[in-house]
Design a binder for these strands. Structure first.
Lengths: 196, 196
DNA sequence: CGTTCAGTTGACTAAGGTCAATTCCCGTGG
DNA sequence: CCACGGGAATTGACCTTAGTCAACTGAACG
């Protein structure tokens, strides 16, 4: 059961659980493989899975007036989901696409709800998970409201340097809330400021 | 126990509970009164309460480079909290201030955690609450990333018209991510477009 | 009737958007 | 090994919109 090592370790950071409790959870996970370019979720669908990434990475974007705007990147060792659609059971506007061949573990909505009712540990995990996501979304929120694109760029460099190694700049640009040309100019500006 | 009517009804929208279960919760609520201008939370403090508003309304803002930027308004019949600070136990950067004399019901962090462990119903409520907040923060996130200030203005008019009746425009401006002068110009632009 | 403060307006600046042209990079096929 | 093609990134010229700072207006209040 090597494929469950990473997720088990990940979840155990959130709360302790017994072997039996883990077995309840593990039994619900389904392993899947996606090829580069395949979709985990498409706009219009209700997000019906929580997905843990064992290998590969994903990009989440929306299509606004014809062009796509990235709002998240997810790498191996993390979850990727439209949690809003997942919990509200409303259609998503998100597209989530594999940026490379990927191995994932999925849990359906119904199975997760059943786990919540069956075991207090998983109910609590659900709360901690929602709180965790909330904290991160809230930080992003404040970055968009309080910081300039340039500040957001520098921050992303500092906080998530991996993104720059693995994601084309055009996607980073829209993640920062600007166009690719503008990101290019911000980079140039910073380079020149550094040089002098 | 008239002061618990609204909150009880509010919570019962999220999940059912028995009279006994309610008594556990209600016993933890402390009623307080705040005068206009008093603070519920100040930057640097760890948010130690979840607050339900019985009367009055609040404004939450951050101080960035000397001027304050509003990121939320909360009215009676809703909760107001820096939930991020509350669950992470880290100092908040938020200021939350009473816009008028207010009556509130507060629940401390420790009491809430105890309720989580004591009763599965409240554990579940904690999850639903976090999910609920998450959905709203996420929507705001997308508005900031996908929409122009003008679109956000029109949207706010449609979705939360109450805000315009009760909140000075300068605060609405920063909530929309712009300066008061810019909001004034956007309004003018829309007026003239409508006229012609 | 004056003070105060929010809101508006004007003139100008700064920064990102738009569109088109160019360069760079990298993989493929001759 | 080199030439070519195509997508990504950069650059240039110009446009649009928000920011800045200051002046003005108007309503609320004492």
């Amino acid at each position: 059961m090597e494929e469950f090592t990473i997720i088990r370790k990940y979840i155990s950071q959130f709360l302790p659980f017994t072997e039996d409790e883990w077995q309840i959870h593990q039994a619900l996970l389904v392993r899947r493989f996606l090829k580069k370019g395949e979709f985990l979720l498409k706009g219009g669908e209700v997000c019906n899975h929580v997905t843990f990434i064992n290998k590969g990475h994903f990009r989440a974007y929306n299509v606004i007036d014809g062009d796509d705007i990235t709002f998240n990147f997810a790498f191996e060792g993390n979850y990727v989901t439209d949690y809003t659609s997942f919990v509200s059971r409303r259609p998503s506007t998100d597209y989530i696409v594999a940026m490379e061949n990927a191995e994932i573990l999925q849990l359906t909505y119904d199975d997760l709800q059943a786990a919540y009712e069956k075991s207090p540990v998983w109910q609590k995990f659900g709360r901690l998970m929602a709180e965790f996501i909330l904290i991160h979304i809230s930080q992003r929120n404040k970055a968009l409201l309080f910081n300039t694109p340039e500040e957001r760029y520098l921050n992303l460099m500092k906080e998530r340097p991996k993104v720059f190694e693995r994601v084309p700049q055009q996607y980073i640009a829209s993640y920062l809330g600007i166009k690719p040309e503008s990101l290019s100019r911000i980079r140039k500006r910073l380079m020149e400021a550094k040089k002098v």
